[in-house]
């Protein structure tokens, strides 16, 4: 089996000899805006015969933060969940179109969604730590993947990356449910990091948190983006403007004749452009607060 046919598609706008120039993993990224982690082409999501989202096409650049914004019911969470195949868990959900992840079709029948979710972590709207100790929460992912040694290091590193280590290192065996909401959400980030993903999907991670906890999470995102590609769904336009490099704006296409709403992608661009000079009128109306 050869992947050579796929390779050129990965780099949409190839810089000269980017293949050779790309630094070794772990080093400071160079010219990464041209490296693409996900390519989505005409993605639609159906629940049974109902089409929840239609014809979404955009690329997700590596080591950047991409925000998905739009009014509620526009399907941005649904789109996000296509990237780690969480939609597979919903019985009658179906995804059409193509999504490639680092050159491989995510929905290839030989691809195991379990491994996809290990490489593409997710943080959910409501902090959802397991009813176990802090340590066991972080070690959960490596353990199910079969890892038995070196868990202490993984737990420590993940908690450090999630900026939680200082707060919890003396009570790793306490229940995670005793943490504050903001701490719980950072624990969930540590839990996601612990399995060594390269992408983090965040589904409105701050909607249940107070402003201080929110600020901490936002700072954290900036700190870890050199190691991870981050996609964040947010209700909060200021948050998108603060944290993201690129922004995708979605809206709902309401059909009054049969009372259905289908999510559509309006435009994707740098965050600066979306919030200062969007090319679509609908985006402008939304970001200036005239709609939604």
């Amino acid at each position: 089996m050869s992947m050579t046919d796929e390779a050129p598609r990965l780099i949409e706008r190839p810089v000269a000899a980017s293949g050779e120039a790309t630094p070794a993993p772990g080093m400071a990224p160079l010219a990464t805006e041209r490296d693409v982690v996900f390519q989505s082409q005409d993605v639609s999501v159906y629940y049974g015969s109902f089409r929840a989202v239609r014809d979404v096409t955009f690329d997700v650049p590596k080591n950047e933060i991409m925000a998905l914004i739009g009014p509620s019911g526009c399907g941005k969470s649904t789109v996000l969940r296509c990237y780690n195949r969480m939609n597979d868990l919903i019985e009658n959900a179906r995804v059409t179109g193509s999504i490639t992840y680092r050159g491989t079709d995510l929905y290839d029948e030989r691809v195991d969604p379990v491994e996809v979710r290990r490489r593409i972590g997710m943080v959910f709207q409501k902090p959802n730590p397991f009813p176990k100790s802090i340590y066991d929460n972080v070690a959960y992912g490596p353990r199910v993947a079969g890892q038995k040694k070196g868990l202490d290091d993984i737990v420590e590193n993940s908690l450090r990356k999630a900026a939680l280590w200082e707060e919890v290192n003396d009570r790793l065996n306490d229940s995670a449910l005793g943490l504050s909401g903001g701490q719980q959400q950072r624990l969930c980030i540590a839990r996601a990091i612990a399995v060594g993903p390269d992408v983090l999907l965040m589904d409105e991670p701050c909607s249940a948190l107070d402003p201080i906890a929110t600020a901490r999470i936002e700072d954290l995102m900036q700190e870890i983006k050199q190691d991870y590609t981050i996609m964040i769904v947010t209700h909060n336009m200021q948050q998108a403007a603060r944290v993201s490099d690129t922004t995708a704006f979605f809206t709902a296409d309401v059909r009054s004749e049969n009372d259905t709403r289908t999510g559509i992608l309006v435009e994707v661009d740098t965050t600066q452009k979306i919030f200062s000079n969007p090319s679509d009128e609908r985006t402008e109306n939304y970001v200036t607060g005239r709609f939604g």
């Binding site: 979710r117 959802n128 199910v144 969930c188 839990r191």
Partner: peptide
């Protein structure tokens, strides 16, 4: 939320059932 959390870090169906 518990199931999603476990699936989200790459647990298989049975692992989610057994551990959560």
């Amino acid at each position: 939320e518990l199931r999603e959390g476990a699936y989200g870090v790459g647990a298989t169906k049975w692992e989610v059932i057994r551990t959560q």
